[in-house]
């Protein structure tokens, strides 16, 4: 199935099933067994009650879920909670408030332009969540489509699609993201315009365009093993169409790995967006991004004003951590064999 020597070939040769490649999506796998175990027990998610009982057994997973709930609530109600406009007209009155320490009026202070930090962090959180969830959804759609097609058809279609996937895995993602995000008016070979990465939709498309590969490989692996099952054979013998087998027998049994990937992909996307914004290539004013806030306050490092970089980063860190904890908890709850 693989051309010898191609990058990533070693993973497949190891008989570890399909390790999701690159980034955090792969980091919490119990590595060697996950792929096989999920494939061996294709029951998808167990009945809900048992599922939640298993989930609740892991304290870290529960903590992650609680944190996530709090952060999502805060983001959704940001317009209500935020004490001030995050991107106000810079009047003399606002500018006079620049670089204030924490006070009742500004619980975590103001930035160098006098804007309320708490409001900006809340709105930045909204952008991070929107980007993270958007990228996860798009990468899942693209990855499932390509992976399912490759895994179901097999043969040269599989070979071609996986070569294509590997190619995307070889190029250093962050560097490519930087190059492309730097373009103010991107187009697809002059045929149609693409949304610029300086706004949230463009950023989502861009990050998803370089984030779908692990999903494609996971789904392909699942399909390759599932399609040999007796029940699929039986469905085929009963005259079920390919479409029916794929959509009613194979995809539902792949839900577990898909959900886990999606959760972890949110974290990766959030981190990537923040790095791009920090490097000046991400979403721009008037959208508020946590990475951009940190870049704005970078000149306070080495002074007593450095709390300006602490809060946006802390929110970023806790948000990604919460998604990863939840993703890890879901994995274990879906597949109890995946950990000792």
């Amino acid at each position: 199935m693989t051309t010898p020597g191609e990058p990533g070939g070693a993973v497949r040769r190891s008989g570890v099933g399909e390790l999701p490649l690159t980034g955090t999506a792969s980091l919490f796998d119990s590595g060697v067994r996950t792929g096989q175990d999920l494939a061996r027990d294709p029951g998808g998610a167990p009945p809900p009650a048992r599922f939640w009982r298993r989930y609740a057994r892991k304290p870290l997973a529960v903590i992650g879920a609680v944190i996530l709930l709090v952060l999502v609530t805060a983001a959704v109600f940001a317009p209500v909670i935020a004490p001030e406009d995050p991107t106000p007209q810079l009047t003399a009155e606002i500018l006079a408030d620049a670089r204030q320490g924490p006070s009742w009026e500004h619980p975590i202070g103001t930035d160098k332009l006098g804007r309320d930090q708490l409001s900006r962090v809340l709105y930045g959180l909204r952008v991070s969540l929107a980007v993270g969830v958007g990228v996860a959804v798009l990468s899942v759609i693209a990855g499932v489509a390509i992976g399912a097609w490759a895994g179901w058809r097999g043969g040269w279609v599989d070979g071609l699609l996986m070569r294509f996937t590997d190619l995307f895995l070889v190029i250093p993602a962050l560097v490519v993201l930087l190059v492309v995000a730097n373009n103010p008016d991107p187009s697809f070979f002059g045929l149609f315009d693409l949304p610029p990465a300086t706004e949230v939709p463009g950023m989502i498309v861009l990050l998803a365009a370089l984030g779908w590969m692990p999903m494609a490989r996971i789904v392909r692996g699942e399909f390759l093993s599932l399609r040999e099952r007796d029940y699929v054979e039986a469905a085929r013998a009963a005259g079920a169409s390919s479409r029916r087998i794929v959509f009613t027998h194979l995809l539902p049994n792949t839900v577990g790995p898909i959900v886990v990937f999606a959760t972890l992909a949110v974290g990766i996307a959030i981190l990537n967006e923040s790095v791009l914004s920090f490097l000046g290539a991400g979403v721009q004013y008037p959208a508020v991004s946590l990475g951009q806030m940190i870049a704005d306050a970078e000149d306070t490092v080495g002074t007593d004003l450095a709390y300006l970089i602490v809060y946006p980063g802390l929110v970023l860190f806790v948000l990604v951590l919460a998604f990863n904890l939840v993703g890890d908890g879901l994995r274990d709850a879906i597949d109890p064999h995946s950990r000792d």
Partner: peptide, 24 residues
């Protein structure tokens, strides 16, 4: 726990915090 923290840590933020710690 440390691994979870390490993976969720934005590298650029950690860098700035470390610089702040050592320079100030």
């Amino acid at each position: 726990v440390l691994a979870f923290a390490g993976i969720a840590m934005p590298t650029f933020w950690l860098g700035l915090l470390v610089i702040q710690l050592f320079t100030y």
